[in-house]
Design a protein around this nucleic acid. Structure first.
Lengths: 359, 359
DNA sequence: GTGAAAGCGCTAACAG
DNA sequence: CTGTTAGCGCTTTCAC
């Protein structure tokens, strides 16, 4: 059961370990003849180099990491995350790079995890759920661990970013609701410490002119329901609510309905992130498709480039598309205004502009 | 930028590397005094042991792996996978164990990946999407890599299994449909090479007495639509269809509707895996909640036990619950027959029986 | 073009 | 209880 090592292959091929190493990596000239012998021997013995030995020797891991500080349960009910990971994997698969997914309970563990990752366990990290002034950014800079920031990050940084314009779709939705005669439009945001929640909330406040009907949720169904309950109890209750994700929107929708409201007649509802089933709900849910797979691909590519030594870049993956559906329509018959067939297959074709980071 | 190593900590604490190592692991008696010195030094230097060095020395990785041979896109549209991973992570988080997720394009890459994993990159693997007579089982046995098989596997094996009874819910649904007067009930299965698809398909064939209306899909929306189209073109078209996942069911539902059929009046529809939004669809979709999180937790626990040397066990996580909803009801008003509030929170309380493996 | 040897940072005997 | 000493399997100088 003792694993076969590079020494076994060397012996089998009648050369030294160094030669085997170089024959595999091509890092120095090798005669075709010996290379063939080495490859044959490796094949015969089913040898695969030990990643940990290689990591130790080279300080590279052939893996990138995503560290999640959120409750694992959120993974299950979030429409963004699985699709994002799918996009990431589609890029990593090309180079047989592994993705390390680690959920941590608290900040101490998170910091320890990043330190451990930087010691030969991962070549880089993808940072999700960014906060204004996120402590992870300086930490990773200090550790020298390459990273890509997914989402808007305002501070100067040497890292690449994958951004989208989340304010624009919010403005579009508010305008749409206004056009339908709505005057009291509420917003249930995600945790406002997250930049993307904040951007959406700010765009909302800007568009409606006040934050009186802004309520902070946490992306879970429970919070969607609770914040909706609060809003509906107001003397001057809103006639429309924009939620920062579909899970909260649907929880809110269910709650409103069970309280005798008809959607969209009594209450218009819009979500965000466009879950793959949202178009099939009743009423079909107006939502913003945020191109998670495209963003995952972009992030993985930027990270690989960074690891290979490229300069950091900010890539704006502008794949937000608002799908106006029945949940915000006064005329219940109409389906989406924008093309509704805009799904995974077409998202590769969305406009992707690139600009270099100036700072 | 040279990383701080155990030698730095030893120097800082005025002891040797061995002492530091043991102070951290507790693998041999250490005086409280020196332990304190070591911990203080480690803290001061922000030292985290190099995982690759440790892996090399101990042949352990502090990580477990899931290798996926499917198209990354499936991850995004599958309701089982994210919830399963969430369950796995909730167990791994307790011990700060990492999850390695690797998507591979073909069998050669998959085999190479398992070999690489077994060389100190992962301590074990979770096997999903089992096939009858799956080649991975003997491979992992040969490699000596601990594993847990998720799903029914009929061959004798030394690995632990996490099983569920998928036949029973299929029988329940068929019986329910029969009771509503349906006589031509079709089934769109997943790829029949997968054991779980096969089990469901066999249960279906058994229950209806023929496989004339059995069609093989591949869990994608596209196949759900295509197989539904074929079924609806039959002279004697079915009046009910049971799909092997919700994604196919919803695609089928949409297709049938766009062809002028009313659901469930003209066509009853049932899915499998109970996506978190399925209860909110219109009509609400009858589906089988298969407790993915509970299965993920069970699998992770069994794998950790195996890694620590426990004997393999087969755990039957029987958390399948059929939610009868509008898509199969003649009386369109009624909601689920079974409690519909059976969600993540309650799934921990489902009956979980344990039996030891006899072979 | 190939070989020999020195580590990468840790753990685990073996001494004391 | 603590120090010394070999490795784990690979890469990478440095010689030849």
């Amino acid at each position: 059961m003792s694993r076969t090592t590079i020494a076994d292959v060397a012996r089998e091929a009648g050369v030294t370990k160094a030669t085997v190493s170089h024959a595999m990596s091509g890092k120095r000239p090798i005669s075709d003849d010996t290379r063939a012998k080495v490859l044959a021997a490796a094949e015969r013995l089913n040898w695969v180099p030990s990643q940990s030995a290689r990591s130790l020797a080279t300080q590279t891991a052939n893996a990138i990491a995503v560290v999640l500080a959120r409750d694992p349960e959120v993974i299950a009910n979030d429409s963004f995350f699985p699709a994002f990971i799918a996009g990431v994997e589609s890029v990593l698969a090309e180079t047989e790079t592994a993705l390390i997914l680690q959920v941590v309970p608290d900040r101490a563990a998170e910091e320890r995890t990043y330190r451990a990752l930087s010691h030969g366990r991962a070549d880089g990290a993808l940072l999700l759920d960014l906060r204004t002034d996120d402590w992870r950014v300086p930490l990773l800079e200090e550790l020298g661990l390459p990273a890509v920031l997914v989402g808007a990050y305002e501070q100067p940084t040497r890292f690449s970013c994958v951004r989208t314009d989340d304010a624009e779709p919010v403005r579009e939705i508010i305008a749409h609701l206004r056009a339908q005669g709505h005057e009291r439009i509420a917003h249930v945001s995600g945790p406002l410490e997250y930049v993307h929640s904040r951007v959406r909330a700010d765009a909302y406040t800007d568009a409606v002119g006040t934050d009186a009907l802004l309520r902070e949720g946490d992306f879970t169904a429970a919070s969607g329901r609770a914040r909706t309950a609060e809003l509906l109890e107001l003397a001057d209750r809103p006639t429309a609510v924009l939620y920062s994700n579909d899970t909260m929107a649907i929880a809110g929708l269910s709650y409103a309905r069970s309280n005798g409201l008809s959607i969209p007649r009594d209450l218009a509802i819009a979500g965000f992130d466009d879950d793959h089933l949202s178009a099939h709900l009743s009423p079909a849910l107006t939502s913003v498709s945020s191109g998670p797979a495209a963003r995952g691909r972009a992030a993985a590519r930027l990270l690989q480039a960074d690891i290979l030594g490229s300069d950091p870049r900010t890539e704006v993956v502008d794949c937000n598309v608002v799908h106006f559906r029945e949940s915000t329509s006064t005329t219940t018959s109409s389906q989406s205004t924008t093309t509704s067939s805009q799904s995974t297959s077409t998202s590769t074709g969305t406009s992707t502009s690139t600009e270099s980071t100036t700072r």
